[in-house]
Design a protein around this nucleic acid. Structure first.
Lengths: 232, 232
DNA sequence: GTCTATAGTCGGATAGAC
DNA sequence: GTCTATCCGACTATAGAC
């Protein structure tokens, strides 16, 4: 599977191909290693994880920091492919079609996709990366926000606005968004505690089913302005 | 326990007044700097932030890592003083006295105290420290969990158990705890996004009032077994 | 107890062969 | 494009004067 230690067999024609592979391996490894260790991760560690030579980092990305920023952009684009479809279903619907039950269903979809992302071990690497950036934002945060976080929050606010019948740009609606997202974020941000307190060893399909139920009850719990949490 | 302490700086004499001051300044600075930069923070940075000499770190704490662990324990003890009172009110009450309305009130208290902690700029430094440990747990996590997180989760589970009339050790109740905590945790873990999306510059008293309302509606939203199906 | 000076180590980036 | 060898700066920890 890995590169054979041979010179290019045919001609100098394949030179861009191998370089691209190195670039991608570095990107993937960088997201994982930076996410776990933070920016303190050494270039040697990064190169080893990617299975490439150390000098490939300054060659392909200019510097360690360049690799870091490229990793952030790569994440934003990957997130778009993961929750993008759910977001687009929201954006596609006009206000006439997007009635309350439909909005609730779409909200459930987005939050479930988000939870998958937080729970999935494949996505875990970049979820860690993003949370780290949140706590101590750098230039990379701008790319993450613009590319993924901002659109997601906007879609959620719109759905909550439709459900509650309030202005999606109003404060009362906007503040509901982090409330919902927080329930899911904690699965990653405080993963060590969650696993321990729930006596889980991992979050598999069985455990995820419980999370889905929780999301559903949260979505059902959203009420309009007049109903202030009264019994059904 | 203190096998790592190679020396005993304050060896019995009450004379180490200045030494104690240096120790505390280092601890306070360490929580702040480690929280922001992670363990990658250099000893020079730590010493500068504390306003003490670089050599004071190995002298008082054995090593940079010793300072890190001491910071974790300091945090656990500070958290106990902040939300400890609220927890003790829960522990003090027997099941006969702790009826549903009372449990809801105490739940509100604890969550509000927790939110204060997440929002308060004074407490911000160690909130960051804790979240960092969650994502990549080290030995310090054990001290944080045992000293602060575990007891808090236990108290919350008990209250939710009383409110819903379910077993506080059961899965259905335990999973509610991270749900509630997550809403609050996000105020710190994704602070950059929250401030931006809510168009807040900071979280002052005015903003905190909205958070308190949100917590209240979450507490009111907790319902007994009939609210959602599944599990016992 | 606190300081300066320094030893020993490691990390990021480069040069130049292939 | 990739590799080895290497420079140079920054780091942690220590030694020893005060």
């Amino acid at each position: 599977m890995s590169a054979m230690d041979r010179r290019t067999p045919t001609s100098g024609r394949a030179r861009g191909e191998r370089g691209e592979a190195t670039r991608e391996r570095l990107l993937r490894a960088a997201i994982d290693v930076f996410g776990r260790r933070g920016f303190e991760a050494s270039t040697r560690e990064l190169a080893r994880a990617a299975g490439v030579n150390l000098a490939a980092i300054p060659y392909h990305f200019g510097s360690k920091r360049g690799l870091y920023l490229a990793a952030a952009e790569h994440i934003a684009s990957e997130v778009r492919t993961r929750i993008g479809p759910a977001l687009q279903r929201v954006q596609a619907e006009t206000d006439d079609v997007l009635d309350e039950p439909r909005a609730r269903a779409l909200l459930q979809d987005i939050l479930e996709a988000l939870a998958r992302v937080m729970v999935d071990d494949g996505a875990a690497s970049w979820a860690r990366f993003v949370i780290r950036e949140q706590m101590d934002p750098s230039e990379a945060f701008e790319r993450l926000h613009g590319g993924a976080i901002g659109p997601t929050f906007a879609a959620l606010a719109r759905l909550i606005g439709r459900i509650t019948g309030r202005d999606p740009c109003g404060r009362a609606v906007r503040i509901q968004v982090p409330r919902l997202v927080g329930q899911i974020l904690i699965l990653r941000a405080a993963r060590a505690t969650v696993l321990r307190e729930l006596r889980w060893e991992r979050i598999g399909e069985e455990e995820f089913a419980l999370i889905r139920d929780l999301i559903r009850s949260s979505v059902e719990g959203i009420r309009g302005a007049e109903a202030n949490g009264g019994g059904s």
